[in-house]
Design a protein around this nucleic acid. Structure first.
Length: 471
RNA sequence: GCCGGGGUGGCCGAGAGGCUAAGGCGGCCGGCUGCAGACCGGCUUAUUCCCGGGUUCGAGUCCCGGCCCCGGCUCCA
């Protein structure tokens, strides 16, 4: 039985989706005004892990993650760089999609705000019609927070003094805590035609509109970074429940913990923002993903060289375990009777599998769950490879493949259909090197090892024998 | 100030009333070894879980009171 922490109730709740067997999930994606950084990745990987676990449990998950491609920061950047807002948005959208691909995150749908202007206008119209919004003299439309009645509960801000936002419009708003649904265009700004004059959507409305359009008027999981709880999600909740007349609009609000860099907040002023495109130059995407995937989604993650390094070691060990097992299956005859040790190992693996699911069921406790994965790799090296039995190796491999459904870092080892011609070429080179070593031609042998490493093939000599592993 | 989350071995991080407090990283020693790495074994590695009280037969785990850290509170994943 899966339990999740709901920000709205501030407690663990039994997870039970609207429609049994299906999970509708909306995650707040980026505003594309700059390169995607590790903080974004932290959130996207966390929700990808959640989605993958739900799928492993048998749910059909629909994952929508928006792209906000019009906003003040995009406009500012386009002015600074003398190009159109669309060029800016396109460039960073491309970067974002590349990052997701490298991190092995597959989102079902990435709706872009500017492709949904008419739906947004319609939604705002509905709010006006029902009396939850008003048009200001400038042509901007604001949400009337007082008309909603349940504002502040998500963020735990129950007094109006804590609601202040969008100070720049304070003179034309009824209350300082009202927020813009539609922003009237100022000279030189991009605009779309609307019943209230030329303008563009406010920041919060797009998520309400696109979530409703693609998931329906009610859905299961709404996620994002915990910095979005106020005002973004508070506002989404208010305008959606008001316009659609549903309650609760979202069943489970899930928020990820923030990322710090060497113990400090990541910010422009500290100059410590780490773009993924830079990080990938130093660490392979699988390592970055493993690092983020094995941290609990609600805790603060600290970016440091040591933590990436640890993930790198863990990745190598997992990759080695999988490949070593595959090698056993290539070489060992299938046995039709298991040894006592073999039967014991099967029982232990069943225990690890159970442990993994129990941990994940408790609000996606990945740290605990992955302790079982690492325990499995330890069993692989210390016991299974000691006295290999094909059936046991096969079981261990199947289990690793199952765990990888959530981890998502070992795909390339499982998607390979060995032996490929490439494998035979590598083996040929390894054999040549073996003969060189025998002839004590170490300089050349070491050179071959170096060159293969550059191609992503690492060699390990074990006495006379040499094994090779892909990175 | 307000709203959250925390303080467990050198580091990361499980454990949330009851067997000897997971797992990993790093370091050291040994095995293997032309070198490197990988892998194996051992040690570092917790009479102890920030401090002080309390509840209990029994508390990292629950309660009370402190101290400290991190994040959010204009825009932010």
């Amino acid at each position: 039985m899966l339990r999740v922490y709901n920000t709205l109730s501030r407690r663990l709740e039994v997870f039970s989706p609207l429609n049994p067997g299906t999970v509708l999930m909306y995650v707040c994606g980026p505003t594309v005004y700059d390169y995607t950084h590790v903080g974004h990745a932290r959130t996207y990987v966390a929700f990808d892990v959640i989605k993958r676990y739900l799928r492993l449990k048998g749910y059909d998950v629909v994952h929508v993650q928006n792209i906000t491609d019009i906003d003040d920061k995009i406009i500012r950047r386009s002015r600074e760089e003398g190009r159109s807002w669309r060029e800016v948005a396109d460039e960073f959208t491309r970067d974002y999609l590349e990052v997701l691909e490298k991190l092995n995150i597959k989102v079902d749908l990435h709706p872009r705000v500017t492709e949904h202007i008419s739906e947004i206008i319609e939604f705002i119209g509905l709010l006006l019609e029902k009396g939850y919004a008003y048009v200001a003299p400038s042509g901007s439309v604001y949400f009337d927070v007082d008309s909603y009645g349940d504002y502040g509960r998500l963020s735990g801000r129950l007094s109006k003094e804590e609601w202040g936002q969008e100070q720049e419009y304070v003179k034309e708003k009824k209350h300082p805590y009202d927020f813009a649904l539609w922003k009237a265009a100022k000279p030189g700004e991009p605009w779309w035609e609307s019943p209230w004059g030329p303008g563009r959507p406010g920041w919060h409305i797009e998520c309400s509109v696109m979530a409703t359009l693609y998931l329906g008027e009610r859905f299961d999981i709404h996620g994002g970074g915990s910095d979005l709880i106020f005002p973004h999600h508070e506002n989404e909740r208010a305008q959606s429940e008001a316009a659609l007349g549903v309650k609760p609009w979202v069943r489970y609000w899930l928020h990820t913990g923030m990322l710090t860099v060497e113990g400090q907040k990541m910010s422009k002023s500290l100059g410590n923002i780490v773009p993924l495109k830079d990080l990938f130059r130093e660490w392979q995407p699988e390592v970055v993903r493993l690092w983020l995937a094995t941290v609990h989604y609600r805790s603060v993650v600290n970016f440091s060289d040591a933590s990436l390094h640890q993930a790198g070691r863990n990745y190598e060990r997992l990759a080695n375990a999988v490949q070593a097992l595959q090698e056993v299956l290539r070489k060992e005859e299938y046995s039709f009777k298991l040894s006592d040790e073999g039967r014991k190992l099967l029982r232990e693996m069943a225990r690890l599998r159970r442990g993994f699911y129990e941990a994940m069921d408790e609000d996606f406790n990945v740290s605990k769950a992955f302790s079982y994965v690492y325990e499995l790799t330890s069993i692989v090296f210390s016991r299974i490879l000691e006295k290999p039995e094909a059936a046991v190796a096969l079981r261990a491999l199947a289990l690793l493949e199952e765990f990888n459904k959530v981890l998502g870092v070992l795909d390339k080892f499982f998607s390979r259909a060995p032996p490929l011609p490439l494998d035979q070429l590598i083996e040929l080179i390894v054999e040549v090197r073996k003969r060189l070593r025998k002839a004590r031609e170490y300089e050349l042998a070491d050179w071959i090892r170096e060159q293969l490493l550059k191609q992503g093939v690492r060699l390990y000599d074990r006495g006379e024998e040499t094994v090779w592993r892909l990175l």
